[in-house]
Design a protein around this nucleic acid. Structure first.
Lengths: 254, 254
DNA sequence: TAGTGGTCTAGACCACGGT
DNA sequence: CCGTGGTCTAGACCACTAT
């Protein structure tokens, strides 16, 4: 600071500088939904290899600033939508006000880790209900809900052996129990092939995994593993509607 | 399903298969903390280019299965630690039981988005307190706490112009207000250079950003932006201690 | 069919940590 | 100093979408 011109003692990686430059360009020169030039052109324009440019784009996509679709192009993403996952929204599955849509259901033996959380035997079958959640016309989450047979003893398998009808039946039976509490965790994961398909993303896409344990009758009565698109969603826990904060420099909408 | 041998109609990418193979190997043939062969050897062993192998390793690191350190090697990561962020832990900053350590503090003009959430003028300076959180001997989160001057009117800048002492002073003054409620959101982000340094990661590393708005006197009295290491942390919201669920196939410890 | 992003290769050099 | 992971290049081909 005393006359030294601050040589680039620690040169930042090119893709990092590139990301910064692009980020600023997105703020000032592009509008939501606009299509960027293709990767080969962009790389040429900045004088870097395509792989390097892609590293910058990946980062920006991870931060929810861009959306890339094969065969189409790269577009400027809208600000992340606030998705309520507070106790008021992530309710006892199937209850009134539930924002989830049942897809189908079957009786299967779950992964060991799931069995452990449910306190069932490791070869014991449980009801597995698939549900999906849509917000603002877009699929935002896919859920696997595990329900031990003991939680829905009166379920008659005759009415609907599988499919959405069966899923609704399981949820209906679940309502008979009184919810005593729940327990939630959030972590980063990557989309499995089936979830990716449902979320309209490629396998491996980053997702926020919300694991909820529902307690009733002093036991774990159900376990929900919900995977949310990490690129488009901001999970909100308050019940007031969500804070409008972003880490970008000038993204605050009017 | 009627005799067709299911040709590889949709061949999965190599890095995806590789990830699966490695994942299974980690479950069965490696123990936590063990060092993997270096990337060049691994790539040769699997007959792929190093870049392809790295794509698989990146995924596994994202899922918290591996830890890579430049100059050292790639090691098998322990299961993610459950980090409580429920209302019982993420309390009114500075209150008893607070798990955060004040680092330093200064009076600065925050980003526009922060100013908007605080409902302060866009050129108005606020107290910015840096704090860090350590769990199990490891840094897990870095926080920026923004406190409008109006929230701590009696703070005397004379005692400590900057540093940890000043940070403690701001938090002490904050205690005079009565917390009326809070509002929380979680989203995926990438570590800024300063956060990355504090978290012992490279810039751009995936982080879970927890934004909390604290209300008092009918206003937003403070805003906390906490960035947690996404690779090592599972954020738990219940107050019972955390669920032991992982997405890996056989990771459940005894 | 043309153009896009997604995957993959075989090299090279750099920055860092331990010796 | 050596070995590690991190960055970067200049190509190639593939899978998908829209026309």
């Amino acid at each position: 600071m005393v006359g030294t011109t601050q040589l680039e003692t620690v040169p930042e990686p090119k893709y990092w500088q590139l990301k910064t430059v692009l980020s600023e360009a997105l703020d000032s020169e592009f509008t939501v939904g606009e299509i960027l030039p293709n990767e080969r052109d962009l790389a040429a324009r900045f004088g870097v290899a395509r792989a390097t440019l892609r590293q910058a784009l990946e980062q920006l996509e991870l931060e929810g600033r861009l959306q890339r679709r094969r065969g189409v192009g790269t577009t400027v993403a809208p600000p992340r939508m606030g998705v309520p996952v507070g106790t008021a929204q992530h309710v006892w599955p199937g209850a009134a006000g539930d924002t989830w849509q049942p897809v189908d259901s079957a009786l299967t033996v779950p992964a060991v880790s799931v069995a452990a959380a449910l306190e069932t035997g490791r070869d014991e079958a449980v009801h597995t209900v698939r549900r999906s959640r849509v917000s603002h016309g877009q699929p935002v989450a896919a859920e696997l809900l595990y329900v031990p047979v003991a939680s829905v003893p009166d379920l008659s398998a005759i009415d609907a052996p599988s499919g959405a009808a069966r899923a609704r039946a399981v949820l209906r039976e679940l309502q008979r129990l009184e919810l005593e509490g729940q327990d939630r965790a959030v972590e980063l994961g990557s989309a499995r092939a089936d979830d990716a398909k449902e979320l309209d993303r490629l396998p491996g896409a980053p997702v926020l995994v919300v694991t909820t344990r529902f307690f009733a009758q002093g036991r774990t009565a159900a376990l929900s593993v919900a995977t949310y698109r990490a690129d488009t969603c901001r999970l909100t826990f308050g019940d007031t509607g969500g804070v409008e904060i972003h880490h970008g420099s000038e993204r605050q909408a009017s």
